[in-house]
Amino acid sequence: MIQAYEYNHQYELVRPIEVFERDDEGKYIIPEQCTTIAPPNNPSFYKAAFNVEKQQWYESATQEYIDSLKPSPLPPSDIELLKKQNALLSKQLTHLLAMFKGAESE
């Protein structure tokens, strides 16, 4: 048995498969759209695809696809919202006090 790697019509990795069948000479029969070249054990690959001419795997994921896999930012917590609201109210109060003191001195 040998390990082979199946790819689809866009040459993207589908799955690893085990090959058991042999020809009359004892060589393993690799199915179409399969290769015995292992994809890189690279965590930075998002969507491995096989280049048949160069006999190597490459990254086929677009930047848009990669970005879509990243988690969206979490909404601010209640404490963060209260801190922002407190800062805004403090700024408004300081501005009102300054206006009030300016009106008193006239």
Rank of each mutant, 00 (worst) to 15 (best):
N51C: 04
L93F: 12
H95G: 02
A61K: 00
V52E: 14
T94D: 15
L69C: 13
I79N: 08
L89V: 04
P75M: 04
L97H: 05
A48G: 02
P76R: 07
Q63I: 13
L97G: 00
P75V: 03
S72H: 12
L81Q: 14
N51Q: 10
P71N: 07
K54T: 09
D78A: 15
H95P: 00
L69N: 06
L89P: 03
A49W: 03
I79L: 14
Y65M: 10
F50G: 02
P73E: 10
L69G: 07
L74W: 02
Q55R: 07
L96Q: 13
Q56D: 12
V52N: 08
P73W: 01
K83E: 14
S60I: 01
L81I: 09
S90Q: 15
D67G: 01
N51Y: 04
I66V: 14
P73V: 14
I66D: 11
T62C: 05
Q55C: 07
L89S: 06
Q85E: 15
D78T: 13
Q56W: 07
L74G: 02
Q63Y: 04
K83G: 05
Q63S: 15
E64C: 00
A87N: 12
T94V: 14
Q63R: 07
K70C: 08
A49I: 05
E53S: 10
P73S: 09
S68V: 12
T94Q: 15
K84T: 10
A87G: 01
E64I: 04
Q85K: 14
I79R: 09
Y65G: 07
Q55W: 07
L82W: 09
Y65K: 00
E80D: 12
E53F: 07
P71R: 02
P76K: 06
A98G: 05
L89G: 08
P71E: 03
D78H: 11
P73F: 14
L82T: 12
L69T: 05
S60M: 05
W57C: 00
A48P: 09
L69F: 10
Q92K: 10
L93M: 05
Y65N: 06
S90V: 05
